[in-house]
């Protein structure tokens, strides 16, 4: 996993639930390439076709609330989104994302100030975010050891199979 992420920001609001990230009627699909077609369909149709690899999602409070469907972070990751920055995350979405190697960052300050389309750069190891468009820096608390290990191994299963898993 790259520790430096660069891309354009896509902004969403508070309480974005997994039913709007990927509606339940598409949960008969399991392939990332299929799921991604319906990502955010209720809010922005064809969202994934606008995303470039590396882009970032920005959201408000409680992002990913609702069901445990891993299809939600799978579809986000498959779209090319490299990381989600929000004011807070729902807990199952939080673990699901790290478990598949999609880093999530809690940084309320940047969420308040960013505008959609701003170009940003994130240093996952240092806990720094730079809004290149607005020329403003932000920091976030370093990831806990377990979460960093999950990011570095690109998810739980590779980490478990590496034989190095520890809490």
């Amino acid at each position: 996993m790259e520790m430096i992420i660069k891309g354009k920001s896509w902004k969403f609001g508070d309480n974005i639930d997994t039913d709007v990230i990927i509606p339940a009627r598409y949960l008969n699909l399991t392939e990332p390439s299929e799921l991604v077609k319906y990502l955010f369909e209720p809010l922005r149709e064809n969202f994934a076709s606008m995303v470039k690899t590396g882009d970032l999602l920005i959201a408000g409070e409680n992002f990913g609330c609702g069901s445990s469907r891993e299809h939600a972070p799978i579809a986000i990751k498959a779209s090319g989104i490299s990381c989600v920055i929000a004011k807070s995350f729902a807990r199952i979405f939080y673990r699901n994302s790290f478990n598949i190697g999609l880093p999530l960052i809690i940084c309320p300050d940047i969420v308040e100030e960013i505008e959609e389309g701003d170009e940003i750069e994130v240093d996952l190891k240092r806990g720094e975010i730079f809004n290149q468009t607005k020329e403003k820096e932000y920091s976030f608390p370093p990831f806990e050891k377990l979460m960093m290990n999950l990011i570095e191994h690109n998810g739980l299963i590779p980490y478990l199979l590496s034989g190095k898993f520890s809490i």
Binding site: S68, N96, N99, L156, L160
Partner: peptide, 13 residues
């Protein structure tokens, strides 16, 4: 509640 990967992990470990 957890995710599908969690469950796979628990089935392995």
């Amino acid at each position: 509640g957890v995710g599908s990967t969690d469950l796979a992990g628990a089935l392995l470990s």
